[in-house]
């Protein structure tokens, strides 16, 4: 009972504290970093559904991120729709492409799946770069209007901080609910053993496609937020290395565990900001070197990540046991 209460207290403190950060003495810079951290938490939570829960290594996640960003950017520029509508449309568009990619790749597993998703994301970038009539190609889309609510346009850093916090909470709640349900269990079953899962009556097609669609739409939501926040998008922002970065987050944190992936984002994104300060200008892009090293070292020393899936599961089980114990005195 004790650690359960402690955990609750910590969560409550965090929930109360996080929104207060902008009121403290923190600068814009820190707020920006935190916003990036939350954004990457959203992305890694999304990737975690396919790679962690369902067990398929998705190297093309950034494709959906890009699709979301460009959906938001183009819709803002051409139609100037309200933010809520844009987020919804981006999510739907992401889901559509997730399904389009998911259905043909269903039969693939392991390496080949990874390669096909990789090829997909590269094709997305090529398309964005070359179809000038739609995306303005290498010029990028600039001057995307900031989201506005009730006539107030968001401009300060803390506005975006709260916006991404809200998005993150929504995503977190959705994933939490899905994980501990019939759908989440079906995903786990597919990851653990596809044949046994089928024999338990799980429709592989349906659940894999569902995982793909949800993951892609979360990625697209992240992209839409990014476009609205940064007000400028460019094809180079959605290159393969971004996928590797997100992969790195969930590998570091622990594939399949929700808090692990969030921890990964919390550790790596500020690290890369620190590197950005430390490293001289011309070496800026070489901070990816660190991500490479992290991937290699994690795979060698702790392939299950900092918070392995099994530990997250046994925590959850302990709680469930306690809950049942409270209700039923007969339970041993």
């Amino acid at each position: 009972m004790h650690d359960l209460q402690w955990k609750k207290i910590v969560i409550v403190i965090l929930v109360l504290l996080l929104p207060c950060i902008p009121f403290g003495s923190s600068t814009d810079y820190i707020l920006r970093i935190l916003t990036t951290v939350y954004l990457y938490m959203i992305l890694s939570l999304g990737l975690n559904i396919v790679s962690g829960f369902t067990g398929l290594l998705d190297l093309g996640y950034v494709g959906f991120y890009g699709i979301g960003a460009y959906t938001a950017g183009l819709l803002t520029i051409h139609f100037n729709l309200p933010f809520g509508v844009i987020i919804l449309l981006a999510a739907v568009n992401g889901a559509i492409w997730g399904i389009l990619l998911g259905v043909p790749t269903l039969r693939l597993t392991g390496d080949y799946f990874a390669i096909v998703t990789f090829g997909f994301s590269e094709l997305v970038v090529l398309f964005i770069r070359n179809e000038l009539w739609l995306t303005r190609g290498p010029m990028g889309i600039s001057g995307i209007a900031s989201p506005s609510f009730f006539g107030h346009s968001l401009s300060e850093s803390w506005h975006f901080y709260y916006l991404v916090l809200v998005l993150l909470s929504i995503v977190l709640v959705i994933i939490h609910r899905l994980e501990d349900s019939r759908i989440g269990r079906a995903w786990y079953a597919i990851r653990e053993d596809e044949i046994a899962a089928q024999c338990c009556g799980i429709n592989l097609v349906k659940y894999k496609v569902m995982a793909f669609a949800i993951s892609a739409s979360i990625g697209a939501v992240g992209g839409a937020f990014y476009a609205k926040w940064f007000t400028f998008i460019h094809p180079d922002m959605f290159k393969f290395w971004e996928s590797v970065l997100i992969l790195c987050l969930i590998v570091l944190g622990g594939m399949g565990s929700i808090y692990g992936t969030m921890l990964g984002a919390l550790l790596i994104i500020p690290l890369s900001e620190v590197l950005r300060i430390i490293l001289p200008q011309y070496l800026m892009n070489s901070r990816y070197l660190i991500y490479g090293i992290i991937l290699v070292i994690m795979m060698r020393l702790r392939p299950d990540g900092l918070i392995p899936f099994q530990i997250a599961q046994s925590q959850k089980n302990k709680h469930a046991q306690k809950r049942l114990f409270r209700h039923h005195e007969t339970y041993p």
Partner: peptide, 15 residues
């Protein structure tokens, strides 16, 4: 062919 990394009760729930 159990789902080895899941709890016993989750295995049955998947069933």
């Amino acid at each position: 062919r159990l789902f080895q990394n899941l709890s016993v009760i989750d295995n049955v729930k998947i069933g």
